[in-house]
Structures are given as structure tokens and as C-alpha cells.
Simulated scan of single mutants.
Amino acid sequence: MSDQSIIAALTRLHLAQPGETVTLTPLTGGVSSDIQLVETSARRFCVKRALPQLKVAAVWEAPVERNAAEAEWLRLVYGWLPNLVPALLGEDREAGLFAMDYLAPEDHPVWKQHLLAGQVDTAFAALVGTALGVIHRRSSTEPGLPARFANDVLFDALRLDPYLRATARVHADLAPALIDLAETTARTKLVLMHGDVSPKNILIAAHGPVLLDAECACFGDPAFDLAFLLNHMLLKATLKRDNPAPYLAAFDAIAAAYLAEVDWEDRAGLERRSARLLAGLLLARIDGKSPVEYLVEDTDKTWVRQSARHFLLNPPDRLDPIRMHWMTRND
């Protein structure tokens, strides 16, 4: 999409004035969208447009309608918890883009960068767990959300297929377990999911976390969001194998804070689904379409692969066995 087309869309949204000088600067970091910093004479904000082909090595196509799904998620969650997400400033569905507040990186560092640098704040991790739990809890009773976020095709293309089914094609002996995880997740419809609760999509603000990039938003299984987030703590504990304890403490803080919010279903059942999904997602970040980029040592990849295989073949009922297993590594 040309700069002039973007500026024309912003003019239609009354975010730029006709004939006004508008500067567009590409922002880096994502693989699924083009994001531009927009500067006008009056303000700075971001504009985001989904890409049909993700910027990864594998062929990974996804419907661009996910841009509208993310805008709808931002609109809804901002109404509940305005400090938790950027404000949505406007949306042009015909152009396939939306505009939102720009949160300057000097005031809103990315949580992933802190974690990779060894800066692990368990209190912040707990706030993330609480925030996710509150979104799920509030959405579980909100009228009309199942129809409003019936984005199963998007979620399948962005998550179930590239993570679980793609991994099943690599590990034939585990295919029944991985396909069952995908099918169970697909048919479980309980809350509004974010779908990509990753530290790269969470900013650290003075008041707490800010969640971004809800392109996978759909009404579905809360266990997926919890497992997806906890997976990142274990992967970083793998990277920091000389001192995994802070990441495992963050794992515990997230799980405890999140589960404390669960009242829409039996906690034990949710934890069981999450623990089993966690095993599948661990393996997916090694052998699926979106391998984790910071695990470059073969010993690290082998550890995750073997650990995930063990728990896929011996499905846990709780998160603790997986978390405790990460404390046993000695290589």
C-alpha cells in the first residue's frame, strides 16, 4: 500500500487534514503487519495494516481480515480496561488498516527485551496474569461476543495450523496427540482470546502492562492464551539455563494470578487443557512454522524437544510437573 493511499485513508478518518504534510516512518519488530509511525502537524500515532504473507521463512499465509479482528478487540478491551491497551483512533476496513495511539519506546519498553536481558520482575508477571484473567472473565458473560468474534478461520490460519498441525507433520508419532490438541482447542468456546499473548506484544508502562497485537482474537479456549504465555517463560528459562529460577518464578506468578480470576469454568479443567497445550506449543516453537529465534544452541533445542515429547506422550493434569521438570536440567 503506497504512502499516498495510507494518507488518503487517514484523511477520510479525519486524522489528517487535506493537503497537510504527513510523515510516515516504518516501525520494525513484527512479522505479520506493516506498522507506520504517522506524524502530522498536530500529533503522532501509529497505523497498522495486516500482510497476506507473514515475514517468516516458511510459507505462512493468513487472511488480512485479522486487522479488523484486532481493531474490534482493542475497541472492546479499551472500554473495560483503558490502561491495558492503546486507544483506537480510527479504522478503515476498506483500506484494511486502523490507527492507534503511539506509545514511545523510551517510556514503554518491550517486556521481551527485559526478559532476554535477565531483568525478571515477578510482580509485573503477576500483573500480566491478572490482566489476561480479567479479560477472559469479563468476556465470558458479555452478550454477543461469540458472534462478534467468530474468527475461527483466522485463529486456525495463525495458530492451530502453523503451530500444532505443522508440528504434527514433523513428528508422525505425536500427530494424534497434536491433532487432538488442535481439535479440542478449536471446539472450546468460552472467552474472548487474545491469541498471541507473548512478551514481544507486551509493553512495560509506569502503571503496568500494555497489550498489543491481538490479530488472532477470537471467542475460544482460554487455556490457549495461558499456555502460550507460559511457554515463553520456559523458553527463556531454557536460554538462561545457568539461572532459570527467575523465569520459573515468573511462570508461577502468571499462573497463580491468572487462575485466581477464573470463575467461568472449573479451574482444574482449564489448567489440564493448558498444561497439555503447553507441551504442544513447546514443541511447536522448535519444529513448527514459527521456531523461537533466540534458541540457537542444539543442546537447548534438544532439551525443549525431548521435554515436550515426554509430556505429549505422558499428558499432565497440572502445570507444576512441567515447571518442575525445567528445574531438573543439568547439561
Rank of each mutant, 00 (worst) to 15 (best):
A8P: 14
A8R: 14
L10N: 08
R12C: 06
L13C: 04
L13R: 01
T21R: 15
L24Q: 02
L24R: 00
T25L: 08
L27V: 10
T28G: 10
G30Y: 00
S33K: 00
V38N: 02
A58L: 13
G79P: 11
L81F: 14
L84K: 09
E94M: 15
A99D: 05
M100V: 01
P109Q: 01
A117K: 06
T122N: 10
V128S: 13
L132Y: 02
V134I: 14
V134H: 10
E142Y: 13
L145T: 08
V153T: 15
F155A: 03
D156C: 08
D156V: 10
A157F: 04
D161E: 15
Y163E: 01
V170S: 00
A175I: 04
L178C: 08
T185A: 09
L190E: 12
V191E: 08
H194V: 05
A205I: 07
A206N: 09
D213F: 00
A214D: 04
C216H: 06
C218F: 06
F224G: 04
D225M: 04
L226R: 08
A227K: 06
F228W: 12
L229M: 15
L230W: 06
N231E: 14
L234Q: 07
L234K: 10
A237D: 08
T238W: 03
T238F: 08
P244M: 11
A250I: 11
D252F: 06
A253C: 00
A256E: 15
A256D: 13
Y258N: 08
A260N: 09
V262K: 05
W264V: 02
D266W: 10
A268P: 15
R272Y: 13
L282H: 05
L282C: 10
D287F: 01
K289F: 09
L295R: 10
V296G: 00
R309M: 14
L313A: 14
D317F: 15
P321V: 11
